[in-house]
């Protein structure tokens, strides 16, 4: 139990996927202009991350390893992630068309969110069990959601701030992301996993 909790804290804070490992930066820049859409994106990504890390584990242990084709891992995981994202999109379009239109192109782009593939590959590299894989996915998603929503909140305030012309827009956003990464360095070394 403690082990699983440590995995979550490690993935969410200490080795935060966005600000420490620099995975999944495109949605961080793309969907963070409003808190509402950031929260929606967080839920969609959480669902996809957890689902795909479990599916990746199942594929790895029941298809790739028995057939001795682990060298096709990346390709197989990408297919699984694409299916998971497509499922999410179909479900979201039916249940919440507004969120679907707000997220727009960033929803299908979860497929290419490197954090999702990163979690799947790191799971197999570290030989996590099924439960550990799922919790690692949840932890990574929690860390991603935390950073995305915090960052969106900061950017909403920045929109009102008086920023010198050369720093406006993406420039100040990247600088802010850098400061947040510095803040997350405070967690470094807390857990060794």
């Amino acid at each position: 139990m403690t082990e699983l909790l440590l995995i979550i804290v490690s993935a969410a804070l200490v080795n935060n996927f966005v600000l420490v490992q620099f995975l999944g930066l495109c949605p961080l820049m793309g969907v963070s202009s409003r808190v509402d859409s950031a929260i929606g994106m967080s839920f969609a990504t959480t669902f996809v991350l957890t689902l795909s890390s479990v599916v990746a584990y199942l594929i790895q242990s029941f298809i790739l390893t028995p057939l001795d084709i682990t060298w096709l891992r990346t390709l197989a995981f990408i297919v699984a992630i694409a299916v998971a994202v497509q499922l999410t999109e179909l479900a979201l379009k039916k249940t919440s068309p507004l969120l679907h239109s707000v997220l727009g192109i960033y929803l299908p782009l979860i497929t290419t969110n490197c954090a999702v593939l990163g979690v799947a590959l790191l799971n197999t590299n570290r030989a996590h069990s099924l439960l550990e894989s799922a919790f690692y996915g949840i932890g990574a998603a929690a860390g991603f959601s935390l950073v995305l929503v915090l960052f969106a909140g900061v950017r909403e305030r920045l929109a009102l701030a008086d920023i010198p012309a050369p720093f406006e827009g993406t420039a100040i956003a990247l600088i802010t992301a850098g400061f947040m990464a510095l803040a997350f360095m405070g967690f470094a070394g807390m857990i060794r996993l």
Binding site: I63, L67, D68, I69, W71, L72, L75, V79, A82, V83
Partner: peptide, 13 residues
């Protein structure tokens, strides 16, 4: 085996 495995995965998907 690779074709079989990937075929299986894409088919399921």
């Amino acid at each position: 085996l690779g074709m079989l495995g990937l075929g299986l995965i894409t088919g399921l998907g």
